[in-house]
Design a binder for these strands. Sequence first.
DNA 1: GTGAAAGCGCTAACAC
DNA 2: GTGTTAGCGCTTTCAC
Lengths: 318, 318
Amino acid sequence: MANIKDVARIAGCSISTVSYALNDDRRIPEGTAQRIKKIADEIGYLPSAAARNLKKKSTKTILVAISDFGGPVYHELLDGIHFELTKHDYTMIVSTGSSTDNLLKERMADGTIISDINISNNTLKQVSKILKPIIILDRKLDDTDLVDMTIDNFDAMYRLTEDVIDKGYRKISFCHGTKKTHDNNYRFLGFKEALDNHGLDVYAEYVGNFTKLSGAKIAEELVKNQDLPEMIMCANDEMAIGIMEILQKAGYRVPEDIGISGFDDIELASYFSPKLSSVRINRFEWGRKIAKTMLSLLVKHKTDVHKEQGELKIRESY
Amino acid sequence: MANIKDVARIAGCSISTVSYALNDDRRIPEGTAQRIKKIADEIGYLPSAAARNLKKKSTKTILVAISDFGGPVYHELLDGIHFELTKHDYTMIVSTGSSTDNLLKERMADGTIISDINISNNTLKQVSKILKPIIILDRKLDDTDLVDMTIDNFDAMYRLTEDVIDKGYRKISFCHGTKKTHDNNYRFLGFKEALDNHGLDVYAEYVGNFTKLSGAKIAEELVKNQDLPEMIMCANDEMAIGIMEILQKAGYRVPEDIGISGFDDIELASYFSPKLSSVRINRFEWGRKIAKTMLSLLVKHKTDVHKEQGELKIRESY
DNA sequence: GTGAAAGCGCTAACAC
DNA sequence: GTGTTAGCGCTTTCAC
């Protein structure tokens, strides 16, 4: 691997001149700069990130840690973040699982955006002392070094529930996703609050884990026990779809016999029959706002936080 | 940020001792090592990746460059790669777009896996001289520094086409994805070859770009011109679904009036009505094989390449 | 078993 | 306008 010294030797100048030329420093005359760049190009010189990062104590890189590459949910979010970050000459890298742990500890990035419930609060708090800024999207932590930019789950679910009540439903159940996740908690709280404010009780609570399969299992149980509510509001779309599939297989019609709603508005939601009513989050915009916040955090260490709002998508499933 | 010097100072020893202790070198007695680790922990010391990478000239990181985080296609592949890489203490980072360019040039990774048609052949060839190993998944290049591990598009599409012919279809069209992509080319070639070998001609060719929307546009045109074949074989599922939607809206029944097939077997394929016949690639296994190849390339600089096979999923759409 | 010191490839302050 | 040089934070060789 050619290094800056090689370029300097061939160009017959010092390494600082090469460094200046390559970084477009005004001191170096156009001609010299061109010549040096040409040589660098010819011998295939590429600066070493490691060396520059070490010297500059910055990487111009933001790490986004997600819980998996699957979920239909991350796509737009990552696009939004990437869009804004690259506009400002930052590089975005994405990781999951144990790779995230390494990356976090090794400080390969100037800032981190985390949406991964598998990372423990402790790890987070520990790392936050050292590596900032950190923005978290999947929980709230009372730690001043962590800024949370969760979506406004409470508000969105509150409004969705009000709509359900408006439509005349009274026996309304809630299907939890993974308990103690921020998303699930606040979606449930919004649901509960809306019910309370209309003098209604929760008909029943079921507990899944955000997967279609967990929804299906719940539905099987329900069918077996013949104890169906008028409406099931689910903490996400995938469970809602799992529930609908089983219910339909058992001969129940949605929405005639029972209403179902989801959350997230994944692509499948509008393909399923009936089209699933859900809550849409504009994740691209959310991502952009997150990136902007990160960028300003990188400079100012303090900034306004923001809660991304959801938009109700009322379709056919209730 | 605490560094190794701080630890050494507090521990009352030299930095080399700290380095040895932290890296579990046998020379340092258990007691001393424990004490040093404890101190490091207390002051929140985390080694700097930049410094270590610079010194060791290796990052223990593999970059995976993909064209977008969207596509329903990457999930399993990335999981497979990640699974195998982390098993061997490597870290995986994922990037897209301009972030990839930066990462590539800055040599932030020991090896790269590329599935991103937006990266030009030239960039690829240039980088391959400097940064190896590189495995490419989305094209074939006659460059010995690049190892390609594309899936066996030709074979899978050949077999699918034979099945279609077996079922009695004769007027068979092909719906291209983005032209000149490896995936599209070889899928078409496999299709063509099967037709040739059965003495059949291509009924018509349409050109989309792998998106649902492009499929929809093609279908609109077809409906307008009233010139439908008996069967349309698509270069991927998304276009197939776009086509089916429009066709159904126009009153055509699939498969009664016209047969449709896809490629990739995305989740939607089995949710759509009718369930789409397609080709499934076990992308998790593919990913594992890719990672294994990368790992051996990192040591041996030469290894056997592999073509991942597809599995026909014949469902209801033809 | 521990320490001194060289050096990885850069950037940037400073000198000329 | 260009060169010299210190130093970023580590690893590792070589002495002791």
